[in-house]
């Protein structure tokens, strides 16, 4: 750990001004990820700019029938917000499948997007890791990689993005609102996180001097046919080995629209438009879901300990789509995977 200065941002403009002035500064929101990274000598900011008091805590309806979520809305508040529970229950369930109550109370919406991988080597500053120290090598590829990726990997990094909430946001096609020195812009959720390629040190397309101000949800919430299934090594309080967010729009037995995203398997929530296309217009049944799973996992590859995740993901996709089709979403409170 290294000493750092601590300042508070008075408003969004001030936050941007402060971060643009100091390349070694970092925003701190809930601190649930950043503080650990500092303690482990993985992040070494010399200045923390506290944004947690900025007025970005509202959840409000948009003119187009969607919802705008302030970047500092705590994960807990968001999960239990009446608008979200009623119209975007998939988002609610995905948030509640993550971390613990105490962590969710602290964690912010924006921080959840920017949280870093849980790859063991990334957190152990004594081991080679390209994400932490570009060019040093990837210890996970031939090391302990049970929790690492099977899709979109590169020779330089096989890390996953660990968020649950983001898997639902990918399905809901959220829009990320950011502001930087050059002004405000929006980023489609699919373009927010990156694949590792040969720049694994970059997790997202957020510029270092930009701040996330809000997440916008389009009107479509799939509140009837959805499910979030998280599979992990214990029944709560563990990161996903594989998670699936599924949302369907049905016309009787026929799928009108389908969206599926996978968590725990790639450097970003994993979607495949081809997989969603094969679902469209088909009967909502296991064989259809299996076809989509095959497409989603077409380029999947394991690294030893995580080989099983390919088959596991295939079954999890079929299961989750089935739950969504039946309108019986996975419960997060009954101590049982359905």
């Amino acid at each position: 750990m290294i000493p750092f200065q601590y300042t508070r941002a008075s408003d969004v403009a001030d936050a941007i001004k402060q971060i643009a002035a100091d390349p070694s500064a970092k925003f701190i929101a809930g601190g649930t990820n950043l503080l650990d990274l500092i303690k482990y000598d993985v992040a070494t900011p010399t200045r923390l700019i506290d944004i947690s008091r900025l007025p970005l805590r509202n959840v409000e309806e948009t003119a187009t029938g969607g919802v705008l979520i302030g970047a500092l809305v705590p994960n807990t508040d968001l999960a239990y917000h009446p608008l979200i529970e009623a119209r975007y229950p998939l988002l609610s369930r995905s948030i509640l499948a993550g971390a613990s109550q105490q962590l969710r109370n602290m964690a912010s919406t924006g921080g959840n997007l920017v949280q870093r991988t849980r790859c063991f080597y990334f957190y152990d500053a004594t081991t080679p890791c390209n994400k932490r120290e570009p060019g040093s090598g990837c210890s996970a590829i031939s090391g302990i990689n049970r929790i690492n990726a099977i899709l979109g990997t590169s020779q330089s990094c096989i890390a996953t993005h660990p968020s649950d909430m983001c898997v639902a946001l990918a399905v809901l096609e959220a829009i990320v609102h950011v502001t930087g020195p050059a002004g405000a812009r929006t980023i489609a959720f699919a373009d927010f996180h990156r694949l590792p390629d040969n720049t694994p040190q970059l997790d997202t397309n957020l510029e270092p001097d930009e701040i996330i101000t809000a997440i916008e949800l389009p009107a479509k919430g799939f509140s009837t046919n959805y499910s979030y299934l998280k599979i992990r090594d214990r029944l709560s309080y563990a990161f996903a080995l594989v998670s699936v967010a599924a949302a369907l729009e049905l016309d009787g037995d026929t799928i009108k629209e389908a969206r599926v995203a996978l968590g725990g398997v790639a450097h970003k929530p994993w979607r495949s438009s081809a997989a969603e296309v094969v679902l469209r217009g088909q009967r909502a049944e296991a064989s259809t879901f299996a076809n989509a799973a095959d497409i989603l996992l077409r380029r999947a590859r394991g690294f030893g300990h995580n080989d099983f995740k390919i088959g596991l993901a295939r079954r999890a996709i079929v299961r989750t789509l089935g739950q969504a089709a039946r309108g019986t979403p996975q419960s997060i409170s009954d101590k049982k995977i359905r």
């Binding site: 029944l235 709560s236 101590k335």
Partner: peptide, 22 residues
């Protein structure tokens, strides 16, 4: 990780013990 002779899950987030749900 025997290459490094190190414990890789030296914290109680990754060293799993049962939680209430288990």
């Amino acid at each position: 990780d025997h290459r490094f002779g190190r414990v890789m899950n030296a914290n109680i987030a990754e060293y799993h013990v049962p939680v209430n749900a288990d």
